[in-house]
């Protein structure tokens, strides 16, 4: 599954976690996925769900449009950090501010992976873009961050994901789960080194946990 991705890529893990959660909750026939462009869009051909490839950074508006028409569906907005924290920050903040019904999963690898590892405004440096302080005081039901590195953390991600889906199905509202993801290809590291880097360095800059 999802073999368009590079070895060690977090997108594959994230998508598999989504698949598992959907199977566990038995909601496959209710899912519509909005994917951003770049590495996320490579997933589209293997998805088991109806999907739309949205303009870069506009996943949340597109998914908002879908959800407002098809109220009973579960619309997943899946994007990378470029879409969420660079070109689409405006859409992200306002979707949270309006508390739109959104199930937003951000796979953050701290670089522009598809174009070859350029530095984004959300790079993992000392001034890394942290969404938590911006959304923490907003009236939203779910906000969490976890790393897609070692086994315990991935189990944690899965736990968050299930909580998030359940909360979305019962109450609606804006849900954001950020997954800090390795990108061994563009970090020029082995998978092991990259996992170590996320566990040791990145998780110190961007604190993990459930905030709301």
């Amino acid at each position: 599954m999802y073999d368009m991705q590079c070895p060690g890529c977090g997108h594959r893990t994230a998508m598999m976690l989504i698949d598992q959660t959907i199977d566990e909750l038995n909601i496959k026939n209710k899912i519509i996925v909005g994917l951003d462009v770049a590495c996320c869009s490579l997933l589209i051909d293997e998805l088991r769900y109806d999907a739309v490839m949205c303009p870069h950074g506009r996943v949340l508006p597109v998914c908002n449009g879908i959800k407002k028409v098809q109220h009973d569906k579960i619309v997943i907005s899946y994007m990378g950090d470029g879409a969420a924290y660079a070109i689409g920050t405006n859409e992200m903040i306002h979707a949270a501010h309006r508390n739109d019904d959104a199930l937003c999963i951000v796979t953050n690898n701290g670089l522009f992976a598809m174009t070859g590892g350029q530095i984004p405004p959300s790079a993992f440096d000392e001034k890394a873009f942290d969404i938590v302080p911006l959304l923490k005081n907003m009236d939203i039901p779910f906000l969490a961050r976890e790393t897609l590195s070692n086994r315990e953390n991935i189990y944690n991600c899965r736990k968050y994901m299930k909580e998030m889906f359940e909360s979305y199905m019962t109450n609606g509202g804006f849900h954001l789960l950020e997954l800090l993801s390795p990108c061994p290809t563009n970090n020029h590291m082995s998978v092991k080194e990259n996992v170590e880097y996320i566990n040791v360095t990145v998780s110190k800059i961007l604190k993990c946990g459930r905030f709301i």
């Binding site: 949205c54 508006p61 908002n64 449009g65 879908i66 028409v69 405006n90 306002h94």
Partner: peptide
């Protein structure tokens, strides 16, 4: 019906893109 006060024209056009592919006339 549904009225969305979008945060920008970019969001507005993409919101109706979503509504259209969900089957409404937007």
């Amino acid at each position: 019906g549904t009225f969305v006060a979008a945060e920008s024209e970019l969001a507005a056009v993409n919101t109706i893109l979503g509504a259209t592919i969900a089957g409404a006339r937007a």
